[in-house]
Write a protein that binds this DNA or RNA. Structure first.
Length: 270
DNA sequence: CCGACAACCTGACGGC
DNA sequence: TGCCGTCAGGTTGTCG
């Protein structure tokens, strides 16, 4: 489930294999995922040395010494397989290092994509120019939320899923954070007190940090050959738990908003 | 301004 | 066994 924590642990896993490595083989296995794979990707990346990996929102970035940065997005079902025993149907991009390590970008649904940008201009990459701050970064705080949510009639759930407000949250962690903060998902974003928005900021930071920590300590990394859920799924308070108890003692409910499931507790979320 | 919905895809799972 | 409906982590655009 690639939301911010999964991309973070994925990038950490890739870093241990790729950072400083030479890309001896770069092989797209098909012409497109959600969007076309750049036709010159193989030519531009093959033989390059990886100089660093980072994450922005739900995007991973792999920089090279040629001034190119490979950007990837995992969509709904994407993941990197590390040293797979064989290349499978949905392995769409293969990377091999000079040390013989193998990485395969696997994405059955192909909602993900890869792209190539000049490293000195990655911030100008279109998706990034419209994006809100990193939820774990210094620019995301209660004062900022108060400012951008003022007057908004949109539900707080839809608002937090809007990457222009804050970048990296998805359906799972929005449900979890709203439950932790005791805020009903349907509440109008502009009608939440500054005090409760401060609790929401804390909740978002806490749930993301805990998920990253679980990925880092128990999963080690999200990039691995199998497709098991990360350990953090065991810690879900409401997501996927319809009919089961909320930590407050209430019962978790499910509703559908804009075609997506929302899990929440009527007793403690107002 | 806001919510609903479709589209892009494949796979897993439950019911019969 | 198998068929069918439903659902799934994201994003973007359109419509009313």
């Amino acid at each position: 489930m690639p939301e911010l924590p999964e991309v973070e642990t994925t990038v950490a896993g890739l870093r241990s294999v790729l950072d400083g490595a030479v890309l001896s083989r770069v092989e797209p296995r098909r012409a497109d995922l959600r969007f076309p794979i750049p036709v010159d990707l193989r030519q531009r990346m093959t033989g390059a040395t990886v100089t660093g990996l980072t994450r922005r929102a739900k995007y991973g970035l792999i920089g090279t010494d040629r001034g190119d940065t490979l950007i990837f997005h995992l969509g709904m079902s994407g993941r990197w397989r590390v040293d797979p025993s064989e290349i499978g149907t949905h392995d769409h991009l293969i990377l091999e290092t000079g040390a013989g390590r193998l990485l395969a970008l696997n994405d059955p649904r192909r909602f993900g994509f890869v792209d190539l940008v000049r490293s000195d201009a990655w911030e100008a990459y279109t998706p990034f120019t419209r994006m809100g701050p990193e939820p774990l970064g210094p620019d995301f705080d209660a004062a900022m939320l108060v400012r951008v949510l003022a007057g908004k009639g949109t539900s707080i759930k839809a608002t937090l899923l809007d990457q222009r407000i804050v970048a990296g949250l998805g359906n799972i962690y929005v449900c979890e954070a709203l439950n932790m903060a005791g805020i009903a998902p349907t509440r109008a974003a502009g009608r939440i007190s500054a005090r409760r928005l401060a609790l929401l900021v804390d909740a978002i930071r806490a749930v993301l940090s805990a998920a990253i920590a679980a990925g880092g300590s128990t999963l080690r990394d999200y990039a691995r050959p199998d497709g098991e859920l990360g350990y953090f799924s065991k810690q879900w308070r409401v997501y996927g738990r319809e009919g089961l108890p909320c930590p407050c003692g209430g019962t978790v409910r499910r509703r559908v908003d804009g075609g997506r499931s929302t899990f929440f507790c009527q007793q403690c979320q107002r």
